[in-house]
Design a protein around this nucleic acid. Structure first.
Length: 211
DNA sequence: CGTGTTTGACCTGCGC
DNA sequence: GCGCAGGTCAAACACG
């Protein structure tokens, strides 16, 4: 298994996702639902600080880790039964056909608050963009739009168009700064990005690895 | 005609 | 239990 060292059956932990972050970032991605967990103070997002992430990039090939993301910080988010872990995978490198994590720095987060209902994992990105819907390689169908209280801009709801894939995303603009787009992903894709279908077979395992 | 968007109605979770 | 707000549905509509 590619990232075997990130799985722990005894602790029932599993990978939630990876965050390649370019060097010009001014804040870390944050776990969207504050009810789930809170980042440790050193990683908390300051709402008053300028928030800028490069567009969320989802590497399709493992070579992307060492090529396209060279010089970038690269984090993985892992969930166990009781905690969230943020691993710094910046020094990940290839070793033949195997990819291994080097210099992984697990950061233990606060205990997860018990929830009444189990939800799919969510990831939230704040991106400075003129367009609302960022190209993440997947095909989405809009199924709703809602004006959220105390906000000027409507929130749009999208579903992945792939059969049997139940991933959803919400897109809204920050009321304090309309230049910022907040994109929230919910769930995991069970397929490769739509523009990458020709090598979906070869990358299917990788896709599970990354998302 | 097929596909995607719009939008009002309806459903559901949550706080009080 | 009630009311509010967020999330979803689905019919109507737009467009290529």
């Amino acid at each position: 298994m590619l990232n075997q060292n990130l799985f722990d059956d005894q602790d029932r932990s599993y990978q939630l996702g990876f965050f390649p972050i370019h060097t010009n970032f001014t804040s870390l991605p944050f776990w969207c639902s504050k009810a789930f967990a809170k980042m440790p103070p050193s990683l908390q997002v300051d709402d008053d600080a300028p928030l800028l992430l490069s567009e969320p990039v989802f590497p399709k090939q493992k070579e992307d880790i060492t090529s396209n993301f060279a010089g970038s910080h690269f984090f993985s988010l892992q969930k166990s039964t009781a905690n969230y872990w943020l691993n710094d995978c910046t020094n990940m490198k290839r070793n033949g056909d195997q990819t291994e994590n080097l210099g992984v720095l697990p950061i233990k987060m606060k205990k997860i608050k018990a929830r009444r209902k189990v939800r799919e994992p969510r990831f939230c990105f704040k991106t400075m963009s003129d367009v609302d819907v960022l190209d993440d390689g997947y095909k989405w169908r809009k199924y709703g739009q809602k004006v959220v209280k105390n906000t000027q801009h409507p929130r749009s709801y999208y579903r992945c168009t792939q059969d049997n894939c139940h991933v959803k995303k919400r897109v809204e603009r920050l009321s304090e700064d309309p230049r910022m787009v907040i994109t929230t992903y919910e769930g995991r894709h069970i397929h490769s990005p739509s523009h990458d279908e020709e090598d979906s077979l070869a990358s299917s395992q990788l896709n599970n690895f990354f998302w």
